[in-house]
């Protein structure tokens, strides 16, 4: 095989590399039904996770609250950052969810380029265990974030609109989130390793995990071409 065809092959995003999967760690989302479906039992660490939803405020931050509460209360002194959020975050609500606001940095920027730059600065500093950002839309940017997240061993959560589901992405995990009258439904669009594909998070009216009812559709691992499944509700 010539060198050029090999490098072409390596650039193919659909290619799953055993070396990546082997070193991939995960951190529990604390939503039992979701963790049960995700490879490694949680969100991948040292990687980008995309959360796709139609409109901001659909539960994308709510999904991460148990994880963020755990991370900001951990005694390793690393922090979490929320970059370029769609709405202003609200202190009392985050504090009520158990987040230590002293270790939750908010970065506001008006331009997508600044949000990406901020994320890279934060990751390069090595001071963060988790980063959330709105506005990463370019494949090249996500790949850069993916590399920076790996080097920093941090979790990066990129909030994107639902329309991005049709385009491929180098993110390690892609979740489609749809709110519903009894709790959000998550569709796993892409992940590394074998996984279920769809799960509904049963919530009580306060957004806390109620008895988890999970429905699983087994599919081939890590396929960009997986058809969208109908929403469970």
């Amino acid at each position: 095989m010539s060198r050029s065809s090999l490098s072409n092959l390596l650039q193919n995003q659909a290619l799953w590399r055993a070396s990546e999967g082997a070193t991939l760690g995960a951190s529990a989302s604390d939503w039992g039904a979701l963790d049960a479906q995700l490879p490694g039992g949680g969100f991948p660490t040292g990687a980008v996770t995309e959360i796709l939803c139609q409109r901001p405020g659909s539960g994308e931050l709510g999904l991460l609250l148990p994880l963020l509460a755990r991370l900001t209360q951990a005694d390793n002194r690393r922090q979490a950052a929320l970059i370029c959020p769609a709405f202003p975050p609200y202190g009392p609500g985050l504090a009520a969810a158990g987040i230590d606001l002293r270790r939750f940095l908010i970065i506001n920027s008006f331009e997508a380029a600044d949000a990406l730059w901020s994320a890279e600065q934060c990751l390069a500093s090595g001071l963060f265990s988790a980063l959330m950002l709105q506005g990463a839309s370019d494949t090249a940017h996500i790949r850069r974030l993916q590399l920076a997240a790996r080097d920093a061993d941090a979790m990066v959560f990129s909030f994107r609109p639902l329309s991005a589901a049709r385009r491929p992405s180098p993110a390690a995990l892609r979740l489609q989130l749809e709110p519903g009258q009894t709790g959000p439904t998550l569709t796993i669009l892409k992940c590394r390793g074998p996984a279920g594909s769809q799960v509904q998070l049963a919530q009580d009216e306060y957004g806390r995990a109620a008895s988890a009812a999970a429905t699983t559709y087994p599919t081939a691992p890590d396929s960009q071409l997986r058809p969208r499944l109908s929403v469970v509700s």
Partner: peptide, 13 residues
């Protein structure tokens, strides 16, 4: 650190 039990949103308009 702040602890609160009020039912408040995480995003504010």
């Amino acid at each position: 650190a702040v602890t609160t039990t009020l039912n408040r949103p995480v995003w504010f308009l």
